[in-house]
């Protein structure tokens, strides 16, 4: 990469940071408990809209994993989720009624909060339907991982988005508040992913899985991206570019080995396809607040009316991280 390209990326990074700085005004602190944050705390950043039903399990899952503080942006919820979050002693919550789309799908808001609170901390950025799995997560807390990453001078950790789905119609099994969503969406596609390298940002671009198989059979290039770098030892100069798919400076995107070895990596179990999804898809379609004019949701809405069974004969049922590692969806790298 030439100096010019490098300079352009630098400018772009500054631009996102300035944009985040401008967008800070859209956020109103509802419960600011950030004074509780201690040195070395692991922070979780998220945006949410009307996810009340998911929040209890989501918070519990990451508390048990060892997240110390949650910083959440509420985008105009009307299902009581804001009130619920306000009551949590380890959650700081900001409210905004502004456009999700114009904050680049929440990235600007979170970039601002990260700029302000995350430097020096490990920052985990996930949606309420994403559950991080990393090597040894059944026996070692998240801090074991971040300590090891620190000791190995690694600043960012990759976790591919793995779409989970139920067997049978999506609306067949109702999700109860507080329930582990993996009990319902326990199936995934093990080996139908396409990976390409993005020369500009240095990240990998991964597509595939059930969404590509069912909704984007004829237009695979339009299928959603599955590569994510959700866990980063934050510094003030960092900025996410597009969701957590890409981050600048680009060195943080080099979460993969290019010489044939395997770096340690995890998976984000994506439990979007619960019974709540059909309703959500229709709602999002109306709001048109999602990526690429909600092309994804358009595709869902059409296909879902016809045959909402993502399950096939070759679907794998989720067991544990070791299974994912054997299948080649994540790796222990040199962590043992």
């Amino acid at each position: 990469m030439g100096a010019f390209q490098s300079y352009r990326l630098r400018l772009q990074r500054k631009r996102w940071l300035i944009r985040a700085f401008r967008k800070r005004r859209e956020l109103r602190a509802i419960a600011d408990r950030t004074d509780q944050i201690r040195r070395d705390d692991i922070l979780l950043f998220s945006t949410q809209r009307n996810e009340k039903i998911r929040l209890p399990y989501f918070l519990q899952y990451y508390r048990d994993m060892g997240v110390n503080h949650f910083l959440i942006v509420d985008n105009d919820s009307d299902d009581g989720s804001l009130e619920y979050l306000m009551k949590q002693s380890d959650v700081s919550v900001w409210y905004t009624s502004k456009s999700y789309k114009r904050s680049r799908f929440g990235v600007d808001w979170l970039n601002w909060l990260q700029y302000k609170y995350a430097p020096g901390h490990w920052a985990l950025t996930v949606d309420p339907d994403e559950f991080l799995i990393y090597p040894f997560c059944d026996t070692r807390p998240l801090r074991a991982l971040t300590d090891w990453l620190d000791a190995s001078s690694i600043k960012s950790f990759s976790a591919m988005l793995l779409d989970m789905y139920p067997k049978g119609r999506i609306d067949q099994q109702p999700y109860r508040e507080g329930q582990d969503p993996i009990e319902i969406t326990s199936w995934f596609d093990a080996g139908n992913y396409s990976i390409q390298r993005n020369g500009r940002f240095g990240n990998l671009w991964i597509q595939g899985g059930p969404r590509s198989r069912m909704f984007f059979r004829d237009t695979p290039e339009a299928a959603p991206a599955l590569n994510k770098v959700p866990l980063v030892k934050w510094e003030k100069k960092y900025a996410y570019v597009s969701s957590t798919h890409m981050i600048l400076p680009r060195g943080l995107n080099l979460v993969y080995d290019e010489w044939g070895g395997e770096k340690a990596s995890g998976v984000l179990l994506h439990t979007k396809f619960l019974d709540t999804f059909t309703q959500k898809a229709n709602e999002e379609l109306e709001r048109k607040q999602h990526y690429a004019a909600s092309i994804e949701y358009k595709a869902y809405a059409e296909s879902l009316r016809e045959n909402p069974d993502l399950w096939c004969k070759w679907s794998e049922k989720y067991i544990n991280w070791r299974q994912l590692e054997i299948l080649g969806l994540m790796s222990k790298g040199n962590w043992a």
Binding site: M160, I195, I206, Y256, W259, G260, L329, S331, W335
Partner: peptide
Amino acid sequence: KAVERRTRGRPGLYMHSRFPNEGW
């Protein structure tokens, strides 16, 4: 084995933390 996995990896596997350049 951990060192081997980190340096050589599983041949023929392409994933988000192993994406070898062609020929390597």
